[in-house]
Design a protein around this nucleic acid. Structure first.
Lengths: 267, 267
DNA sequence: CACATCATGCGGTCTAGACCATTCTGGCCG
DNA sequence: CGGCCAGAATGGTCTAGACCGCATGATGTG
């Protein structure tokens, strides 16, 4: 935001590096520019212009620009300039919550808690969470809906050791939120997706008529190295689908340099 | 005029830059080292050692190291050294074929062609492939099996314009292989996964008994910007599941610098 | 013996230049 | 009018240093 039009041409003596690194200042300035000022495809100030504006050397400016280019935010073109990169497809599935997911689809999420208790971990759950069998876990069963229409039955288990007080004030609005608040922000996970037929109980709760097909996901959620949650969700097959972006088959290793090396592409 | 700072003390021979850039040479050397000599976690030569070995400046060495670190092949640790990165989890789903997929699970893939013809594109297919309705497409229906057990019904459409002779010698072993051979190697795609109940016809072909739940995927496959295939597959719900790795929820923008900016991390 | 200190080596940041390769523009000339 | 060519501007590569902060192990010291 603050545009350092005049960067105190020489040495700011008091805090020379306390304020962080110079390239970070340049990067922050550029990031702000990209987010608030420029549109996709717009040109950024040239390296030499930034050099003048910030009173730093060109290598420092390039470090900022290159890091943004590496993040896919910028595209650099020799002889032309540096431009805001076109929005790229995100090739990674994200750990989203049901609430976020539904809102992103433009609907209002709803929740009905069916069951919540702290219990000894069942064998399968203990396996998935790498716990000793019988170690206490919070178990939560919820019926999730979108715009009032039942969509999914969720069954989640979290190690009680990580969040001892989680259920003290009732079931939290968001389990991921509770994990984040406890310092166990989910960082990665794994879904296993399958299909099966709803039990009569499930069919009733989800108000299914006609087709009884369910899309089931079993999810393990991790915060860094610790398993923080195991959950199963059953979605109405007629109302829910998952979109998975796909990348090309995995290349060898060390891509960038190899490209130019072998000119022939006769495969 | 100005004598170049580089004193050409050593080699300014016939082809000084014809052979490529210096940092690429360093990178290639390091890549070979990583692939053939070193194990996960091993230390690489220090920047200054590489500087001596190649007779280049440290910035040039760093460009090679940084690019490999950006590719996730190396991990740099201030004060300690540069190390071969641990094999990382692949957070991206890949465009795999049924055959590859089954073989990776240790089973033998099988195929029975049910139908193959070149026909005018149905409306929905034309939409998905961005064709004019009625434009000719190759249509292929196959029953796929693993170790002789029926697993999946596949229905695929490919623009005939891209591979005019695809069906001349019967149905190719691999549709992706045919695309690659024609210069349309698939580079990305998108699966939409849902669940539904098998029709009697599907149940018969897949020899389903008991549960009639199917896991269905609709896939669009692209080679760069051109849609090269649209396909639907129906998997037996009791025998097939999809594993999707998940990354943490998407951060705002501009991650790297922002991290250090707010000093407080009172955990 | 336990602990503080220091030297060393490492990657991280930064400078003030240089030349190269590519792209585009504008003016010149046929 | 059309095509060619020279600049100018841009990013790409590279140098030969400098100082900083961090991690580690050796060296003393109480």
């Amino acid at each position: 935001m603050t545009i350092p039009a005049a960067p105190a041409a020489d040495a700011p003596p008091a805090t020379p590096h306390r304020a962080g690194h110079k390239y970070q200042a340049v990067r922050a300035y550029l990031a702000d520019l990209i987010e608030n000022e420029l549109a996709e495809g717009d040109a950024l100030p040239s390296e030499r212009a930034l050099t003048d504006r910030f009173g730093v050397s060109r290598m420092t400016v390039r470090q900022a620009l290159d890091s943004l280019a590496a993040d896919g935010v910028l595209v650099r073109e020799q002889g032309r300039g540096t431009f805001v990169a076109p929005a790229r497809v995100d090739f990674e599935m994200r750990l989203t919550t049901f609430g976020e997911d539904v809102r992103r689809r433009g609907m209002a999420p709803g929740t009905r808690v069916l069951d919540a208790a702290t219990v000894p971990a069942p064998t399968r759950v203990a396996e998935q969470l790498a716990l000793e069998p019988g170690e206490p876990v919070h178990e939560v069963r919820r019926l999730r809906s979108a715009d009032g229409v039942p969509m999914s039955l969720e069954h989640a288990w979290l190690p009680a050791r990580l969040l001892p007080a989680m259920l003290d004030d009732g079931v939290p609005e968001s389990l991921y939120g509770a994990l984040r608040a406890a310092g166990y922000a989910p960082t990665w996970g794994e879904d296993t997706i399958s299909a099966s037929v709803a039990t009569p109980d499930e069919a009733t709760l989800l108000q299914m008529q006609g087709s009884l097909a369910l899309l089931r996901t079993r999810r393990r959620t991790y915060a860094e190295d610790t398993a923080v949650m195991y959950s199963q969700a059953s979605y109405r097959g007629d109302r829910y689908s998952v979109v998975v972006p796909l990348r090309e088959a995995k290349p060898t290793i060390v891509p960038r340099a190899a490209r130019d090396a072998d000119g022939r592409t006769d495969r």
